[in-house]
């Protein structure tokens, strides 16, 4: 009986000491990190397009943190899903087609002579990238536009285009060497 007590007491003591050490360490050496919602939000592309069914990226981040699927963000695309899967330690899944397709970055352009100045697009823009006043022509601040498409449906005269942003020599990127190791596919335009 005494041995049993000694053993129990020893184990309890060890458990207590180790427990308090761990407890102390978890307080003292606490890893300061973003709350998970912020970390998810940092991965999302911030187009605020709402294709995921949420009114913006932050709400979707909150939804993911609450357990929603990570494949509902077309602008983030495959890379975004991969990053989210890595962060949340989940399986990489294919993009949910019902939300839309991944496309190249776009920018909204208002055909200004057709604009009637209804301000509907201004109200729809999630990042305040359209300027203008009632009955006056509106225009898009291209550098602030996220290409979310949200201004297109409200326009009563359909004067907003969403062209793909064209690569210029300034933002041209070197192609993946693996894709050009085949001599046929070198993307150098030969115009003669």
């Amino acid at each position: 009986m005494q041995e049993f007590l000694i053993a129990t007491l020893t184990l309890v003591t060890i458990a207590f000491v180790c427990g308090s050490l761990l407890g102390f360490a978890s307080v003292k050496f606490k890893v300061e990190g973003n709350p998970i919602v912020d970390q998810i939000n940092d991965i999302l592309p911030q187009t605020q397009c709402g294709q995921c069914g949420h009114p913006g990226c932050k709400p979707y981040a909150e939804a993911i943190a609450a357990g929603e699927a990570i494949n509902r963000c077309p602008p983030g695309g495959e890379a975004g899903i991969k990053a989210l899967a890595e962060l949340l330690d989940m399986e990489v899944v294919e993009l949910d087609e019902s939300c839309g397709e991944e496309s190249l970055p776009r920018v909204a352009v208002i055909r200004e002579d057709e604009c009637i100045g209804c301000t509907k697009c201004i109200q729809a823009c999630p990042v305040d990238a359209i300027v203008g006043a009632a009955k006056l022509m509106h225009t898009v601040i291209a550098s602030e536009c996220t290409g979310c498409d949200l201004c297109v449906p409200p326009c009563p005269v359909d004067c907003i285009d969403m062209p793909i942003i064209e690569t210029t020599s300034q933002d041209w990127r070197w192609p993946d060497p693996k894709t050009v190791s085949d001599p046929q596919v070198i993307p150098v335009k030969v115009v003669t």
Binding site: P45, Q46, Q48, K58, V127, D128
Partner: peptide, 16 residues
């Protein structure tokens, strides 16, 4: 650059 752009969009969205 994309990250910067996203950060800016986030700020503008939050401000809005």
């Amino acid at each position: 650059a994309n990250q910067e752009k996203a950060e800016k969009a986030k700020q503008r969205f939050e401000f809005r």
